[in-house]
Design a protein around this nucleic acid. Structure first.
Lengths: 188, 188
DNA sequence: CCACTAACGCAGCGATCAGTGCGATAATTT
DNA sequence: AAATTATCGCACTGATCGCTGCGTTAGTGG
């Protein structure tokens, strides 16, 4: 054995259980008004015994964080359109479309409400993707900009509309947002 | 009697109970990691019988929405500094300071997680205040701008940082945000 | 001051939740 | 293929939640 105490076993049955539980959380959040989301309810929906959830995740907060991390982490490679504007517009429009989905939004809300680390789990990967796009532009020799400010001005308004206003942003609006942001970079 | 069916009685004991319950919710959210926030726990902390909470609010979601609405609704009159930039900087800095408070943030997270209308309850009054500032500038004959876009570019990054990143924004950064936003208005 | 009734406290009842041993299953290593 | 053990299912228990009649207190209008 490699380690004496902690040896994980991710294959086979465990993976199926994990997938079923994740799907159950998404389904329940899409249907109910949340608040009723409890470990036994998730277990019943997933066809898994409640004990399993108590052992593997312990609480709904940790389960939600886990689900959100998986859901909002896609290994997609942002297509190279040749320009920073093109890359950002394509990417932010996709993000806008994703966030505009009511079910996705329900998962985000619940995750945010589960604890202080919930919000980070929702956007961690987005920041990575944004950094990759900006890095590519720098390698291209184009305009250099800060990842922080880009996140503030692009993701900020997008997620604000999704979480705090009744109607989320559209993909078209996201593209306009990119144009506006890039304009501010050229005219300091 | 004025009305036959719905006669509210807001004075005296009811007001005290309401205040105690609101304070209890704020305290519990500040201490615990949420999730444990249940009607009986709030009742115990407030020194009120749980039955009262079930009757007046019904669920934690409605209670949180009520608390958030009260907490984020201040009848403050934004001081007239003479210019749009001054008004916005003063106001947004105050908002940033408020949102940077961990206890306030905990209330916001919990309210967002309680239901789709939770986010709106947190920023409803901010939008009203912002509209008042912009309206004053128009009466002054100054630059006209849209409340929607102002909310997107000012409140958006601010609340995004508060909810989705580990470290919330500072008052100074909020002032810089106003400057940047006003610059984009002058250079289309 | 008196009548009216909204709002609160009390006692108690299912239902469900959170958690714990223990045996069974199956993923992983040798 | 056999041994090891991480992981899951089952049965069970104490605690708590959500909720409901019923009597009491106290705010409100006459």
């Amino acid at each position: 054995m490699a380690d004496s105490s902690t040896q994980v076993r991710p294959g086979g049955r465990s993976a199926k259980v994990r997938a079923a539980v994740h799907r159950a959380v998404a389904e329940l959040l899409a249907e109910e008004e949340a608040e009723t989301l409890t470990l036994p309810s998730v277990a019943t929906r997933a066809g898994v015994h409640p004990t399993t959830l108590y052992r593997r995740w312990g609480s709904i907060a940790q389960l939600l964080t886990d689900v959100a991390s998986s859901r909002f982490t896609d290994d997609l490679v942002v297509p190279d359109s040749g320009s920073l504007a093109g890359d950002l517009q394509r990417w932010l429009a996709d993000v806008a479309t994703d966030v505009a989905d009511p079910d996705t939004l329900a998962l985000m809300r619940a995750t945010i409400g589960s604890g202080p680390a919930g919000g980070c789990a929702c956007v961690e990967d987005r920041h990575r993707q944004l950094a990759a796009i900006i890095q590519r532009e720098q390698d291209r020799g184009g305009t250099a900009t800060d990842v922080e400010s880009a996140a503030d001005f692009l993701l900020g308004p997008l997620y604000y509309r999704a979480v705090f206003t009744p109607e989320p942003a559209t993909a078209d609006w996201a593209r306009t947002l990119v144009t506006t942001y890039l304009a501010t970079l050229n005219t300091p």
